[in-house]
């Protein structure tokens, strides 16, 4: 790992000023993806700005019809949160299935969303619930947030502060995990909301995406049997040593059915 300057700001404003001070400065959240990529020299920055001292970014709270999760909240806290368990149990399942317990003690929701790994779990939960990503500058709807592989709508100098999840009527998450890393080979988050059904797929393509055909079928009947006729095209899906595009296409439907069956 190449050396870098390390900053530990004590306010969001300070952090924003630090990352705007040069082009190759990066925010550090839990570091569960950033530090490995620095160690492999896949990335190099002159300075890291650690958000670890900003305790106001940690925590889960219920605000009316929404669950609000601070950007620096570790996965383990979300997985164990009574608020999340009662409002969106599928999100607790999702957070509790990320990587391993030691990574879950450190990795954060904000870090995961800023990184936008195509096989990460949180993007499915965020897009599936139709959550809103709040930054130090604005609010971004999940439908406008994920732009591509490791690509988001975040602008330079923008810091995620929290994520607001509207509480769905029912939601479920199911994933086929990669045996070693526990990343999603295919993960599907299904939510039935007052505004309709949302189905978000992670791991299968370069970026998380919504499966509109499945949403339409589930809107008519929210039951796994409604997905019997759904076929997903392998065109544009990921193909690697873990799974071919054809296998992923098949698994998208299987995981969607399981997510619906598990929905609570």
């Amino acid at each position: 790992m190449y050396d870098f300057d390390y900053h530990r700001p004590t306010s969001i404003e300070q952090a924003a000023a630090l990352i705007s001070s040069a082009d190759d400065v990066k925010l550090l959240a839990g570091g569960m993806s950033l530090l490995p990529s620095l160690k492999m020299r896949l990335a190099r920055y002159t300075a890291l700005v650690d958000l670890g001292a900003l305790k106001e970014l940690v925590g889960v709270r219920r605000e009316g019809a929404e669950v609000v999760i601070g950007a620096m909240t570790p996965h383990a806290v979300v997985a164990a949160s009574a608020e999340v368990h009662s409002a969106i149990p599928a999100l607790a399942v999702l957070a509790g299935g990320i990587a391993d317990p030691l990574v879950r003690n450190r990795g954060t929701i904000g870090g995961s969303l800023a990184h936008a790994d195509p096989a990460a779990d949180y993007p499915a939960g965020v897009l599936g619930c139709g959550a809103t990503i709040c930054t130090n500058k604005r609010r971004i709807a999940s439908d406008d947030y994920f732009l591509g592989m490791f690509e988001t709508a975040l602008q330079p100098g923008e810091i995620i502060t929290s994520v607001r999840f509207p509480v769905p009527q029912k939601a479920g998450y199911a994933k086929l995990h990669q045996q070693a890393s526990r990343f999603a080979v295919v993960g599907v988050f299904v939510a039935r909301t007052a505004a309709g059904v949302r189905v978000a797929v992670t791991g299968a393509a370069p970026s998380v995406f919504r499966l509109k055909e499945a949403e339409a079928a589930l809107a008519k009947k929210f039951d796994a049997s409604a997905l019997a006729g759904i076929a997903v095209s392998p065109d544009g899906l990921n193909s690697d040593i873990h799974a071919s595009a054809e296998y992923r296409a098949h698994c998208v439907v299987v995981m969607a059915k399981r997510a619906v069956a598990a929905a609570a």
Partner: peptide, 18 residues
């Protein structure tokens, strides 16, 4: 694995300064 403020974490993926 070590305990940081009581929680198990992987010390190969934590900065000392953090």
């Amino acid at each position: 694995t070590v305990h940081v403020n009581g929680q198990g974490m992987k010390s190969c993926t934590l900065l000392a300064l953090a």
